[in-house]
């Protein structure tokens, strides 16, 4: 595969095909993800948006029979063929999952996990990382007196914000969010959305969502997937106010999906 020089985009995806065995889950995807923006991936269940998200940090590698062709470049380097390790990639491209999945450890150890596996062991350094990470997601004051309590005792919304703190503790450049609020109540959802908007100053955010209002509220760019194809993408306002493709229009006006 050629190492085409990408544009200023953070991710440059060219002719991406993805197969699960003989089933083609993604078809000729061409897409660019702009740095320091929120990109929303929308579409009905099974359309390939989550699959696409997971190609960006190679979490699809765990799916048996998954085969990928085409270019996926991060800052101009192909993440599959340039010899970049998954370890390095996943440090640069962090992930927040649909179900909050804190480790069965303390709040402190959850946030410190990423730095620790990269060899940070000095207590003072870890303390600082834990504090700044929790501050960044706005839960430091809430959690500072119970850092040594198990993370499993927290509410779903708190757990999800803790998971975000855990992700940013390793200073990623990109954060992938796979329907991060689908398991949360409306107030927690709002907090996560506000947080995402604040975070785009520092990070590039790609979010998969089933919630059209959510995509509309927080994203700069929206991409609409259907049956493994990228139907349409562009500035969020354009997609929602003036979709070019009939299928996009039908989906966002709720006629199917």
């Amino acid at each position: 595969m050629s190492e085409k020089k990408a544009t200023s985009a953070k991710f440059y995806v060219h002719d991406l095909d993805l197969f699960y065995g003989s089933f083609q889950a993604l078809k000729k995807i061409n897409f660019q993800i702009a740095a320091n923006r929120i990109t929303a991936l929308i579409g009905p269940s099974g359309c390939g948006k989550s699959t696409f998200l997971k190609t960006l940090n190679r979490m699809n590698d765990f799916v048996e029979g998954c085969k990928i062709t085409g270019d996926v470049q991060l800052d101009g380097r192909d993440i599959y063929t340039s010899g970049m390790s998954e370890i390095e990639l996943r440090q640069r491209v962090g992930m927040v999952f649909q179900q909050p999945n804190p480790f069965p450890k303390t709040i402190y150890d959850n946030v410190a996990y990423g730095p620790r596996i990269r060899g940070v062991h000095r207590k003072s350094e870890l303390d600082e990382i834990v504090e700044t990470s929790l501050r960044e997601v706005g839960i430091w004051d809430e959690f500072k007196d119970r850092l040594n309590k198990s993370a499993l005792g927290l509410s779903g919304g708190q757990q999800q914000r803790l998971c975000i703190a855990r992700t940013i503790a390793v200073h990623p450049e990109v954060i992938l969010m796979d329907e991060p609020t689908s398991a949360l109540d409306p107030i927690s959802t709002m907090k996560i959305e506000d947080l995402a908007v604040e975070m785009k100053e520092k990070y590039t955010i790609v979010i998969v969502t089933h919630n059209m209002q959510q995509a509309n509220r927080i994203s700069d760019t929206t991409a609409f997937f259907l049956l493994g194809e990228l139907i349409e993408s562009g500035p969020t306002q354009d997609i929602f106010l003036n979709p070019q493709n009939k299928k996009t229009e039908e989906y966002i006006t709720g006629r199917f999906g």
């Binding site: 979490m59 765990f62 998954e86 440090q91 999952f97 999945n101 480790f103 069965p104 390793v170």
Partner: peptide, 27 residues
């Protein structure tokens, strides 16, 4: 041990060995 815990660690860039002995075995 739930797959989600493993995925969380892999998502942070942990190696298989790290996931096994730091996440899976303690759990």
């Amino acid at each position: 041990v739930p797959v989600s815990a493993r995925m969380a660690a892999y998502g942070l860039g942990a190696t298989r060995w790290q996931v096994t002995h730091q996440i899976v075995m303690p759990a």
